[in-house]
Design a protein around this nucleic acid. Sequence first.
DNA 1: CGAATCAGGCTTAATTTAAGCTGAACTTAC
DNA 2: GTAAGTTCAGCTTAAATTAAGCCTGATTCG
Lengths: 220, 220
Amino acid sequence: MRLLLVEDDVQMGPTLQNALSQAGYAVDLSVDGIDAEALGDIEPYDLIVLDLGLPKRSGLEVLQNWRNRNNHVPVVILTARGSWEEKVQGFKAGADDYVAKPFQTEELLARISAVLKRSSGTSGGPLQVAGLQLDEDAQSVQLSNGTLFTLTGTEFRLLRYFMLNPGQVISKSRLTEHVYEYDSDRDSNVIEVYVNRLRQKVGTDLIQTRRGQGYIFGSP
Amino acid sequence: MRLLLVEDDVQMGPTLQNALSQAGYAVDLSVDGIDAEALGDIEPYDLIVLDLGLPKRSGLEVLQNWRNRNNHVPVVILTARGSWEEKVQGFKAGADDYVAKPFQTEELLARISAVLKRSSGTSGGPLQVAGLQLDEDAQSVQLSNGTLFTLTGTEFRLLRYFMLNPGQVISKSRLTEHVYEYDSDRDSNVIEVYVNRLRQKVGTDLIQTRRGQGYIFGSP
DNA sequence: CGAATCAGGCTTAATTTAAGCTGAACTTAC
DNA sequence: GTAAGTTCAGCTTAAATTAAGCCTGATTCG
């Protein structure tokens, strides 16, 4: 799951980025409105955390521009506490949720997780697909026969992405984009290696190969 | 376990802070309502001790504002003895417990401990997880084989936080937030050092490392 | 039809990277 | 002076990545 964090505060930005990484997301950080707007259009983020008070171009404007261009990426905005106006404007502009500053990291994490679940159709409870149950607290997965596997960071992100998009052919480049932070364009077989490791844990049939196209998770 | 103590009395504030520290909490002290309100929103306290008679903004108001903003941190209020009204208003505003002034420190400690246990789902009796029994009075821990270890302050706070959140991956930054008082953002390996010391006492397997993610206490 | 070819995918082992561990020295508070 | 807390440096080890060779399914062509 790959996020864009748009936050110009030099203190808060990296701190949050770190916290989000630890929570198992791949996070890019952008520090101004123009840069953020471009990134949000180019990169396939699963969610964007958007501070409204930004240099160069306000967060609100950025958000409106995205929506005008039919970019419907889920957005959680960070508003000033008590600013009822900002919040309303934010929702009007197409935000999916908001967190008022100041906030606790755990609060933000909870909102992000909720929005992601909502936007993927699932609602509430642990992610449960195709006989697998993903435990986000323990970063582990339980099979239908009860066996429990712990997952490394990358395994976890990859599997979660599969489970959030079941029955859908997902190309390797799309996987790379969602599992890794910006850089990237790796000409390597990392994804294959990780698919292999996941298959060893959750079983071979759950992740099927579509030669030349990608993989498909949990589906006839 | 990290507390915020909100108490404007110059005598009582530091005295209580001291007592609470000795009892093994990391304690921040705030002396006015506005400051307290902000702190309570920003920092991830595990509990707040709130005097109702405060300068700048009344404790009641502060509490109401927190609850309105969906901040559900456990709160123990300090009310004037016999003031039935205050007590009722306090509960209405969302307090978890109250202690009437004047009180004995031990009374307050007991209430705090009770609220913490209640809010973490555990109820009654000493904290007992994964074969360990934590003695809050003596700041010591007993292993299932009977051996008893005394703990230093930091060891105690760390272990208690683990025991209150078993089976959950806890990042180092989260641990830092809950074990230390405000300042902090330490770029150091203190947590690692203390995990090491704890492991020497309670055994290696109880605190497992999830490389790149954090630690997980007492769980497969 | 079926053997040869080829490309994409799989798998395992080796290498690199960086997180975490730990003993000891140093600092601080009492 | 002592005990707790913190920092540091060298070491250990897991995770991430790369690379090489093998496997397999599709296609072509005799």
